[in-house]
Design a binder for these strands. Structure first.
Length: 682
RNA sequence: GGGGCCGUAGCUCAAUCGGUUAGAGCAGCGGACUCAUAAUCCGUUGGUUGCCAGUUCGAGUCUGGCCGGCCCUACCA
């Protein structure tokens, strides 16, 4: 029976490029969709850019253009990146579309009519210069508990305490640098608690969620009253204005999931179909693929909204973990925060599709991209095993046809065909890694078959040409069978196989009957091994892009800090352990005497007091910038345990810390007020 | 502080409901082959299933504790 299936992947935010972490989800979803289509099901892959919110508004302002121009630009980039990875959406929309506004208004009416909406005042910091309210992450200031400067709006990284942005000492907006003021504005909330019973039922029954997710929700949210969900924002905000709440906008998280429907509506208009057939029909399954970070929205808030609006509930929310690279979080400084476009500049996207497939299961576990394993797996499985089958058969029958009837192959093809249902079940359950394991077993068998038949020997004997052709017919059919199974993962390989064997793969069941009598074309390499140099270059490019990005940002941030300093003296690549660090005993010291040194061009002789009667005699190369008179009495930082060094002018017993490249650019470090000579620097 | 997940061969992962001697792939080692992109094939090494106890005729699997790692929370969602 043909199923109708609507599939979504989470909407990427229009504030940044696609990176390989995003790709886990879009590739996972793409594989699942291609699988469904190959099975003959009617399946739509729907996605869109998520375009609203403060971040977009601010960025557009900084770049001196409209939000619309910014999101149009980002959309183009996203679409290009997805295409490079063979991620094929049926519709790629935008949350900033007429269709989405229309659906938002309908849904808003439903939740309002159902009495779920309530208005409450909200007190928030407001940036009078940027004329917008500030989310916590846009406020910085001094921690109210430990007085550490430059801490986040809601917690202190120094003392780990939490607070509200209102408590911050000396708060300032990271948008404009202005001092925010406390203001109050009405917000509209959705009272999710009214749907509590429904959500208990829906999340805990019917296999809509992975078991660990159902447990998580039960333990974390469903045991208590569900909080009201703040879904509007006062101006200024980039989004859709709420019809019955003039001057206010829907919060980005309200219209983002609705974007799934808005984008579907766009597709329906283009294809003359009815939206209700996809979103209000019991005959259509809705599947969402998301990352674990947005679980709450998709498993509580979103089903609640859908239920209220009389729309289809998801048949399943498929939740995946995060991507790590070489066992660690993706890191910009390590060059593992790899953008999709950077990857595609160096490596074949098929590799990544295969690698992810070989690691993905239906669990929420994180997935690690170990670059050595990546190479080993792609080389060994795809090049060494799969493509090799075609490579070692095709030449012997080039420009000839496959046998007219299928030869005896010891049931190999038939056994491979019997695996179809098992493999399909793995795909269906998102156990791609299990599917791949089964498929690779078939590839091993095919290679064993060829080995045992030794076609390279038969080739030398004119009388055995027929037998040779039969062996190659078997080998190439086993290969094609494998390619059918890998089809959802490797669409390019399907194309290449179609060209080689002159007969397109169109359906999963093509794996069940062998190809006979068709022409075999000239074999061309289908996949190269992973080039380790390109992997290296990709990492290097990622690091470089990071530097460029940092300097690009500086033009628009309130702090005009250029990249010159780092360029002059690059960061040390070498790590220093804490133990290394504490070896250096740095102390606050007071300059009690400062003198010119006769015969020295750059040096001043300083007497530093560490408090009491502990002093150090230090020669410092700072004469070009500092006069002895102005130094006397001031506090400096010195290294107190530097091995004493005999100089031409006397013994130097330490070092005064200063920054800058030298010459006229020397800047002594001094502690903030209150520090006393002798205090250690930690 | 509260909660969750995980720990199986050098690496990545299997092992049905608690059931025979814990299995694959990769890597390693030994051999074969030479059609194939230094590919392939045959053989082989490798495990106190993190540790300790308990339940059981029987534990990788269930229970408790400990160790190690990851994640979510900390009165936000």
């Amino acid at each position: 029976m043909t199923r109708r299936i609507l599939v979504t992947a989470a909407l990427p935010y229009a504030n940044g490029p696609i990176h390989i972490g995003h790709l886990v989800e879009y590739i996972q979803t793409d594989i699942w969709v291609r699988f469904q289509k190959l099975r003959g099901n009617r399946c739509l892959y729907i996605c869109a850019d998520d375009t609203h919110g403060t971040a977009i508004m601010i960025r557009a302002r900084q770049e001196g253009r409209s939000e619309e121009a910014l999101i149009a630009d980002m959309r183009e980039q996203h679409v290009r990146d997805f295409a490079a990875f063979d991620i094929e959406f049926d519709n790629y929309g935008s949350t900033h579309s007429d269709e989405n506004r229309q659906v938002c208004e309908q849904i808003w009416k439903s939740v309002t009519d159902d009495g779920l909406v309530i208005e409450k005042p909200v007190e928030q910091l407001y940036d009078p210069e940027a004329e917008t309210y500030l989310a916590d992450r846009f406020v910085k200031g001094t921690c109210p508990k430990c007085k550490a400067p430059n801490q986040n709006g809601d917690h202190c990284e120094k003392c780990l305490s939490n607070y509200t942005p209102k408590e911050l000492i000396d708060p300032r907006s990271t948008l404009s640098g202005a001092t925010p003021e406390l203001r109050q504005a009405p917000h509209r909330f959705i009272q999710l608690e009214q749907l509590h019973d429904f959500l208990n039922e829906w999340t805990q029954s019917g296999n809509h969620l992975q078991p660990e997710i159902a447990n998580y929700l039960k333990g974390h949210f469903l045991g208590d009253e569900l909080r009201d969900w703040d879904v509007t924002r006062p101006p200024a905000y980039f989004g859709f204005e709420v019809p019955d709440f003039p001057g206010n906008y829907w919060y980005v998280w309200f219209d983002a999931p609705i974007g799934y429907i808005g984008s579907t509506l766009q597709w329906c208009k283009a294809h003359g179909e009815s939206l209700d057939d996809w979103w209000r029909s019991p005959d259509c399954e809705v599947h969402h693929f998301i990352g674990k970070d947005i679980t709450y929205f998709h498993t509580l808030f979103w089903p609640g909204v859908l239920k209220t609006a009389g729309l289809s509930l998801p048949e399943k929310v498929h939740i995946h973990g995060f991507l790590t690279v070489d066992g660690e979080k993706m890191s910009k400084s390590k060059g593992t925060f790899i953008q999709a476009s950077t990857y595609a500049d160096h490596l074949d996207p098929s590799y990544l599709r295969y690698f992810f497939a070989s690691k993905l299961s239906s669990k929420v576990d994180d997935l690690d991209l170990n670059l050595d394993e990546f190479k080993a797996k792609v080389d060994s499985d795809l090049v060494g095993k799969v493509v090799n089958i075609a490579s070692r058969c095709a030449k012997f029958v080039e420009d000839k046809t496959l046998s007219k009837s299928y030869p005896d192959d010891g049931m190999l093809f038939r056994r491979g065909a019997l695996a179809a249902d098992r493999i399909a079940e793995h795909y269906e359950n998102c156990d791609f890694s299990s599917a791949i394991r089964e498929i690779m077993f078939l590839a091993d068998q095919a290679n064993q078959y060829i080995e045992s038949k030794q076609p390279w020997k038969l080739r030398k004997d004119q009388l055995k040409r027929g037998e040779l052709r039969e062996i190659c017919t078997v080998g190439l059919n086993l290969f094609r069978q494998i390619v059918v199974y890998l089809g959802p993962v490797l669409p390019k390989l399907v194309q290449q196989t179609n060209e080689l064997l002159s007969e397109p793969i169109q359906h999963w069941d093509d794996a069940k009957s062998p190809l006979l009598g068709t022409t075999v074309n000239t074999f061309q390499h289908m996949l190269q091994r992973v080039d380790p140099e390109q992997v290296e270059k990709m990492i290097e490019d990622t690091k470089d892009a990071q530097v460029t990005e940092a300097s690009g940002d500086s033009a628009t941030s309130p702090y005009d800090d250029g990249p010159e300093a780092l360029a002059t003296e690059p960061l040390s690549g070498e790590e220093c352990t804490y133990d290394d660090f504490v070896k250096v005993d740095m102390r606050v010291a007071r300059v009690v005497a400062a003198n010119h040194v006769e015969g020295a061009d750059k040096l001043l002789q300083l007497t530093l007091s560490l408090g009491g009667d502990v002093t150090r005699n230090v020669f410092a190369g700072i004469k070009s910038v500092y006069d002895p008179e102005q130094l006397v009495g001031r506090l400096v930082i010195c290294c107190a345990n530097l091995a004493p060094r005999k100089m031409r002018f006397g013994l130097s017993e330490g070092m005064v810390l200063a920054s800058g490249p030298g010459g006229k650019d020397i800047f002594l470090l001094n502690p903030d007020e209150g520090a006393k000579p002798g205090m250690r620097v930690h």
